[in-house]
Design a binder for these strands. Structure first.
Length: 784
DNA sequence: CAGTGAGCGAGCTTCCGCTTGACTT
């Protein structure tokens, strides 16, 4: 047994550190937090100065048991959890649980897993910082209060009330998406005319090439643009001025969790959870450093390693030492930036994670490479018939620098409308006369801000200081699981635009069309998300404010610096917050999100769109009317906020009766699992390309026949009387009786077709007697 | 698998931030 026990958070880290520290040290992982607030009564004694009640969660009991055993049989325990608020708290919980004295237990910290950093840390142990621990407790308790007081308000006040939730992070994330959607819905595109002239000139080899020059202004109307082009009839064009300016581009900082998620989304099309899953794999196999980090820092050993790789691969001229500073104030920088552990591996074998690894490798390398050097040329071109001038600009790369390896991607949000890459210009001389090929005035439209992708939402949250590297991916999963937000594509719509062309002194007009507004894999708010957001914003404006987290983070910092008492700070938050909760429970009406659409022509009955118990719907007539109201579910892409009366009426065309097949009616409707046809008490899902509003009987009939034969193929054997079937499933053959399925024992799988009634019955009895183990055991009620 | 939609109200749900495994009726 080693003399010293070092406890870290991550097992992969434990392995590496143990190698560095040698045989006197055993390094073990506690797998993150080992205690959490109890769930009953929120786990907080609010009337007793917010005294927390901590328990060891079921899935941590084994870890804690092992830690206790090791701690007992060792001379000294060292706490080496991460150097941030959470890490400090984990160390304190370890003291409490393992019976260590926080006044003497050695606490060590390092920001990088390198031999010098760790050896240095061991030589300079400190003690637990209780102020920092208290800041963490305040953070934890505040989040619990917000979550566990707001969620029940939703259960009481929403018409759909199962599994709803609210929280400091998730509710603001949903709000961002809701507000962006409304911004887009309320946006009106304005058009203007952009003038481009195409000239011909000789390049260095004497070959004619075409280059582009832009007009002086954008014209608001087609008339103004036409007037300008008319003025250019018969004009001569000459170069009036040439300016050449040097320029440069610098590489981006190495990856943090958030920038990795953004780039993997832009360049590889990965969801944030896919990125994190692959990064975890790379980390566990020792290929990259820790993947949940907000730091852009690189260790000295890494810097030396990177310099070597650059010099070997590209030459010394391509290396430039850089130190990046974090732009983000909320960063806690407990780790390094995300980088390969060994720069000599430019790629790896694993096919799943190779692309992500190469992205990390390139980004890391590029971050220590020279600037790219450019030469920007701007030429002004005179028009003889008026006083206006045209501008041609070109950019030539003089030295590629970091661009040899890597260029950061962009979100459409950052792009201005004219974002075409400037090409190179032919050599031009002052007063040179130019041949005009043609001049065009093209109608262009302003665009609303794009909807968020998962990754651009993470970027926004990070800017607001909301959430942490370990929670970005789970938060995005949560708001989708709660059905506040959904990820989907949107088809664009066709739009005409006008072009005026001046060629050989003749003006012509053409109209072309383009597809606009198409989006792929974007986040859309659901009706539920909008209604919940509106409700929370109305009654809990403070928590829903985009600056709320930043504000309380400042207070947590004050606690961490000993300038504020943690429970006093909590009390200042809680008193008004809880008053809002009580007031809302007492006074707020149940929310239906109702919107009037108009009246039904034939009867004069009101038509509304609203939230029902099973989702958004439209309703004709009122509940208190003599005749029952009619209901119809909204389609997946429709929303209460934007549906029109015409679209609503269309929904009432279902169910449709298509006529008879084999003497039974065939009806078509949309159910819980999408469009289906019903025939002879059986159901058939419609194929994706079939539209339930227009589909015909002769398209449904093959569906019915097809399902019958598929069922025959799936069936191995049937015992009619006992209602037992032996069927072929995706995991192999199984037995079905009534609605329940039973697993066939391994030794009989291959001869499933030979199973007799008696054998099948025996298997069923056997499974019933020894039910298969469930994934998660049912929650234990305390026996005390 | 594929009805529903009012109101009453059993008993249920819920947060954020640290960390990884378990698992195919």
């Amino acid at each position: 047994m080693a003399k010293n026990l070092v406890i870290v958070e991550s097992p992969a880290k434990a392995k590496t550190i143990e190698k560095i520290l040698g045989k006197d040290f055993e390094v073990i992982s506690c797998f993150g937090h080992i205690r959490d607030l109890e769930k009953d009564d929120m786990g907080i004694d609010i009337n007793n100065n917010f005294k927390p009640k901590y328990i060891i969660p079921d899935d941590k009991e084994k870890v804690v048991k092992d830690l206790k055993k090791l701690a007992k049989s060792t001379d000294e325990v060292w706490l080496a959890t991460d150097e941030d608020r959470e890490g400090e708290a984990i160390s304190w919980h370890l003291c409490e649980v393992l019976g260590l004295d926080p006044e003497i237990t050695k606490r060590i910290v390092f920001h990088e897993i390198t031999k010098p950093a760790i050896e240095k840390a061991v030589q300079q142990p400190r003690l637990l910082n209780m102020n920092l621990v208290n800041a963490q407790q305040a953070r934890r308790i505040l989040d619990r209060i917000v979550g566990f007081e707001l969620s029940p308000v939703l259960w009481r006040k929403m018409s759909m009330r199962n599994h709803l939730s609210a929280g400091r992070v998730q509710s603001v994330a949903v709000r961002l998406i809701v507000e962006r959607e409304r911004e887009i819905n309320g946006f009106t595109a304005v058009s203007s005319f952009k003038v481009e002239a195409f000239f011909i000139a000789k390049d260095l080899n004497g070959k004619n090439i075409t280059f582009k020059a832009e007009g002086p202004t954008r014209f608001k109307t087609a008339e103004d643009a036409e007037k300008f082009l008319q003025q250019c009839v018969g004009a001569a064009y000459a170069v009036k001025d040439i300016q050449v300016k040097p320029g440069k581009k610098s590489p981006a900082a190495p990856f943090t969790t958030s920038t990795l998620q953004q780039e993997a989304s832009r360049k590889l099309g990965y969801s944030v959870s896919k990125t994190m899953l692959l990064a975890q794999k790379l980390y566990e196999s020792g290929k990259i450093t820790y993947m949940r980090t907000d730091s852009v820092n690189l260790s000295d050993t890494a810097l030396a390693d990177i310099q070597k790789a650059i010099t070997t691969n590209y030459g010394a001229r391509y290396h430039q030492h850089r130190k990046f500073k974090n732009k983000n104030e909320s960063a806690q920088e407990a780790h390094e930036a995300i980088r390969p552990t060994y720069m000599e591996n430019a790629s790896i074998d694993d096919s799943d994670s190779r692309k992500l690894y190469e992205l990390i490798w390139k980004r890391t390398i590029a971050s220590q490479m020279s600037d790219a050097e450019l030469e920007k040329t701007i030429a002004k071109i005179d028009i003889s018939t008026n006083h206006e001038e045209l501008t041609a600009s070109g950019e030539v790369l003089k030295f590629d620098g970091f661009l040899k390896v890597y260029m950061e991607g962009r979100d459409d949000e950052d792009e201005s409308e004219e974002d075409e890459q400037d090409g190179s210009l032919p050599p031009l001389a002052l007063k040179q006369v130019l041949d005009l090929k043609e001049m065009k005035a093209t109608e262009r439209f302003t665009r609303p801000a794009p909807r968020y992708t998962e990754a651009s939402l993470v970027k926004k949250l990070e800017e607001l200081g909301i959430g942490r590297p370990s929670t970005y991916a789970p938060t995005i999963t949560t708001i989708q699981k709660r059905n506040y937000v959904e990820k989907r594509d949107k088809e664009g719509v066709k739009r005409d635009f006008r072009i005026l062309v001046l060629k050989s002194d003749k003006l012509t007009k053409v109209t072309e069309s383009e597809n606009t507004g198409a989006e792929k894999s974007k986040l859309f708010p659901t009706d539920l998300g909008m209604i919940v957001t509106d409700f929370l914003s109305q009654y809990f404006g403070n928590v829903m404010d985009y600056g709320f987290t930043a504000k309380i983070e400042e207070e947590f910092d004050e606690v961490a610096h000993g300038k504020k008492i943690w429970n006093k700070m909590l009390n200042e938050f809680y008193t008004p917050f809880h008053k809002d909760v009580e007031n809302t429970l007492e006074n707020a009406e149940r929310v239906k999100g109702e919107r009037q659409l108009g009246t039904e022509e034939s009867t004069g009955k009101p038509i509304v769109a609203r939230m029902g118990r099973y989702g958004p719907m439209v309703q004709i007539g009122k509940a208190e009317d003599e005749e029952k109201p009619r209901f119809a579910k909204l389609k997946a892409t429709q929303s209460i906020e934007t549906i029109t009366l015409e679209e609503a009426m269309e929904l009432f065309k279902l169910p449709r009766n298509l006529g008879k097949f084999e003497d039974e009616d065939v009806t078509v409707n949309i159910g819980r699992f999408g469009p289906y046809a019903a025939h002879d008490k059986k159901f058939y899902s419609l194929k994706k390309e079939m539209d339930p509003y227009t589909v015909e009987l002769d398209e449904i009939a093959p569906l019915i026949v097809e399902k019958r034969t598929a069922k025959d193929e799936r069936t191995i054997k049937v015992f009619e009387k006992e209602k037992i079937q032996i069927l072929k499933g995706p995991y192999g053959p199984y037995i079905k009786q009534g609605l329940r399925n039973y697993k066939i024992p391994k030794e009989k799988i291959d001869t499933a077709a030979d199973i007799t009634v008696e054998e099948a019955k025996a298997i069923i009895e056997d499974v019933k007697a020894n039910p298969p183990k469930k994934k998660a055991p049912p929650r234990k009620k305390k026996a005390e």
